[in-house]
């Protein structure tokens, strides 16, 4: 499996601005310098924070899969741990709580 080249900070900044713009959010609405009245971050603070986040968190999440082994590990991992939005509620709705 080939490893894609990691994006540069400049590329990440472009990506972040583009993603925000697609969602309708304009970083230019943030102040250029510190604004004690609102306490909102400056544009550069926001960009720095998002760059750090984008470098670390999404890749760590995307790299995880339920463990499986063998040549078809990826296929078995697909079957493992179906996504559950509300795990504790699912325990109740499937009748598996109350017996402990």
């Amino acid at each position: 499996m080939s490893e894609p080249q990691q994006p540069t900070d400049e590329q990440l900044d472009t990506y972040i601005r583009a993603r925000l713009a697609l969602a309708g959010v304009d970083l230019n609405q943030l102040p250029e310098s510190s604004d004690p009245t609102t306490g909102a971050p400056t544009r550069s603070q926001a960009l720095d924070s998002l760059r750090t986040f984008v470098k670390s968190t999404p890749p760590a999440i995307a790299n995880w899969a339920p463990s499986a082994s063998g040549a078809w590990a990826a296929a078995y991992a697909q079957q493992a741990s179906p996504p559950l939005e509300y795990p504790s509620i699912t325990e109740a709705w499937t009748g598996t709580v109350g017996g402990r």
């Binding site: 993603r19 306490g39 909102a40 971050p41 986040f53 968190t57 999404p58």
Partner: peptide, 17 residues
């Protein structure tokens, strides 16, 4: 976005996932 005041950043982070 300034209406989020000091708490803005995690709302923006949510758009990055």
């Amino acid at each position: 976005p300034t209406a989020f005041g000091v708490s803005l950043l995690t709302w923006l982070q949510g758009l990055m996932l």
